[in-house]
Nucleic acid binder design. Structure first.
Lengths: 114, 114
DNA sequence: CCTTTATATTCACAAAGACGAATGCAGTTT
DNA sequence: AAACTGCATTCGTCTTTGTGAATATAAAGG
């Protein structure tokens, strides 16, 4: 069991609209920073700052692939907590974003050309 | 459904160890301020300050009885959220505290004399 | 190697939060 | 109508957080 102190630390990280939006997004799939940047319409540095907070709170994990860093929820406990907050995950297939150059979205660009 | 902004407001209120402890306490039963004061070993004004935050976040409700003000969880949604955080409520009967002069605890004083 | 790309970090300042101390205020008792 | 009791609020100070701007770093490609 976590102490009240430890719990408070995690909630502090949750107590921010942009960070909540990021976490909600990560429920359906992992995402690289540039994808979130496009999805949220915020500066890259700003997104990275919020991700740093989430990382330090142990809410997300990272995976490096070439130049990109993919973020995902840290564990099942986190995912379960988020489900309790947001309800069940809505969209099954993560959105491909226009103007996003990450691998996942680049596919859609190629497809749209063909 | 709440917006990220609205959710963040509620989490901000949760992101504090003493407030979490108060909420945890209220899960098993309502409590007056003097009771919490004794239970948490903090100054009365300090407790009231934290209660104000919880009130403004819509997490607790109040009931006035003579000189005392009893606090309880605001609604079932709040209670459910807290259960998700803390797990099931542990103690069935709320503790009677020595050195607490609220009606509930005063009973125990009378009983201990007889 | 030099550039470019994707991401991270640092800095600075405004804004908000934490909390002790002091004070206000409503309801009760005498 | 004092005086007391239980609680709430205000104030001041210190610490923390939020966020824009600038800068750093690491991986890839030429």
């Amino acid at each position: 069991m976590s102490s009240y102190e430890e719990l408070a630390v995690r909630f502090k990280a949750l107590a921010h609209p942009v960070r909540l939006q990021i976490l909600d997004m990560l429920r359906s799939d992992e995402a690289c920073v540039c994808h979130m940047e496009t999805a949220l319409g915020k500066r890259q540095a700003y997104i990275s700052q919020q991700l740093m907070v989430l990382r330090e709170a142990g809410l997300v994990d990272t995976r490096k692939d070439g130049l990109q860093v993919f973020y995902c929820l840290a564990d099942d406990i986190t995912a379960t907590l988020l489900d309790a907050i947001f309800g069940p995950v809505e969209e099954e297939r993560p959105a491909r974003l226009e103007g996003c150059s990450c691998p996942r979205c680049a596919v859609s660009v190629l497809e749209s050309v063909s």
